[in-house]
Amino acid sequence: MFQSILSNLAIILLGHLLMSTLITYRERFSKHLLYIYTVVLFSTVSITMLYLPISFGDYRLDLSLIPLIFLALFRGWKITVPVLFIVSAWHFFMGSDETLSSIVFVLILPTIFTLLLYERKIPTNINLKILFIITACWIISDLPIILFIPNGMEIFKNTFLLRYISFLSVASIYCAFILIGYKNDRLKQRLEFLASHDPLTNLLNRNKFIEIVEVKMKESDTNHYIALLDIDHFKQLNDTHGHLTGDSVLKEISSIFNKYESDNLKVARYGGEEFIIYLKTVYDKQAVRTLEHIQNEIRTTPFHSNNGGSLHVTVSIGLAKFESGSRLYDVIHQADNHLYSAKNENRDQLVVSFD
């Protein structure tokens, strides 16, 4: 019995290692190919476990349901259903006369039950939820003993503890590795975010912005623009209302930028109270109109000061256009010159480099 448990555990952890490797290098695969690899991997693990049952006298317990439970719990319907279909089909064509009841109770019903409890975000009480799901799925999978075997209830009473402990122990170890992997993946994503974003505003930082724009500049079927935006009288605002109010204004302006951000518009904090914007449009008027909308929304937004009052903030903007053969830093320099002109023209202005 223990040898079978260890064999099942080895197979399931090997599958987890391979899945972790796929997740680590997921950027190298297309979404479609990654989906296929995941389906094949989980199907293979579950089918292999069919051939490693745990024996209790004349009765056996296979643990092929466990990968399906966690796949359903953490990945949802889209990827679980094809894996369930493949494993069930294999079980049907390779099984015995009792295969149909095994497929229904051991595979289909527990998996559907788990899918009904699927959540996109991992809840805080995930450990209790997993314990409940594992126990419920084990009970469902053991129902054929009670329903279809003579003296089934007596057999269930004599073996249920060992069967449950075997099922729970393998599932718990697998669960621990999955949760550790999720925590590591979230930590990695957080570190990547911090490396590419400004910590105060959560906008892109300058280096990441330059990296993104240099890629987008290669698209030749549209026009590209760079704008530099500066908050007017920001030093005076800090001196009068305090740096906490200044930080609050930066955050609120960043939230306005987030409304406009898309594949055609990227914003980064350039330094201090200055922001840099990349725009991609077909017509010059579209770029100007978008910046005017942003400028007007900032102008009409009541910002909150640290003492509970409200502030009105304006911004100056310099806009430059990529011309044939332009280098990014040359366009940024040009936008900076126009920003300087806007601030010299009583601020709250938009100055462009084209008609």
Rank of each mutant, 00 (worst) to 15 (best):
F2E: 08
A10Q: 08
I11H: 01
L13S: 11
G15F: 09
L18G: 01
M19H: 14
T21P: 00
T21W: 12
R26V: 07
K31W: 10
K31T: 11
H32F: 15
V39Q: 04
V39F: 02
V40P: 03
M49H: 04
I54D: 08
S55T: 14
F56K: 10
F56D: 03
S64Y: 04
I66K: 08
P67E: 06
F74H: 14
R75D: 13
K78F: 14
P82Y: 11
I86W: 10
V87Y: 02
H91M: 13
G95Y: 08
G95A: 10
S96W: 10
D97I: 10
E98T: 15
L100E: 13
S102K: 15
S102T: 13
V104T: 14
I108N: 05
L115Q: 04
E119Q: 14
E119T: 14
I122C: 03
L131Y: 01
F132E: 06
F132G: 07
A136R: 00
P144K: 04
I146T: 09
L147Y: 10
P150M: 04
N151S: 13
I155Y: 09
N158A: 15
S166K: 06
S172W: 14
Y174W: 11
Y174K: 03
A176W: 09
A176M: 14
F177L: 12
I178K: 10
I180W: 03
Y182D: 10
F193Q: 09
S196C: 04
H197A: 08
L200P: 05
T201F: 02
F209L: 02
F209H: 02
E211M: 04
E214F: 00
K216P: 01
K218E: 11
T222Y: 07
L229Q: 12
L229P: 03
H233C: 09
Q236R: 12
Q236T: 14
T240A: 13
G246D: 13
V249L: 07
K251A: 08
E252C: 07
I253E: 04
S254A: 15
F257Y: 13
K266D: 02
A268H: 05
A268L: 05
E274C: 01
F275Q: 09
I276R: 02
Y278M: 04
Y278P: 00
Y278R: 03
T281F: 11
Y283N: 12
D284E: 13
K285T: 11
V288M: 06
L291M: 13
E292L: 10
I294D: 08
Q295H: 11
E297S: 08
I298D: 11
I298T: 09
G309D: 15
H312R: 10
V313Q: 06
T314F: 04
S316K: 03
S316D: 11
I317M: 07
L319G: 01
K321G: 00
G325E: 02
G325A: 05
R327E: 07
R327N: 07
A335C: 04
D336R: 02
H338M: 05
H338S: 01
A342M: 02
N346R: 06
R347G: 00
V352K: 09
S353Y: 00
S353T: 08
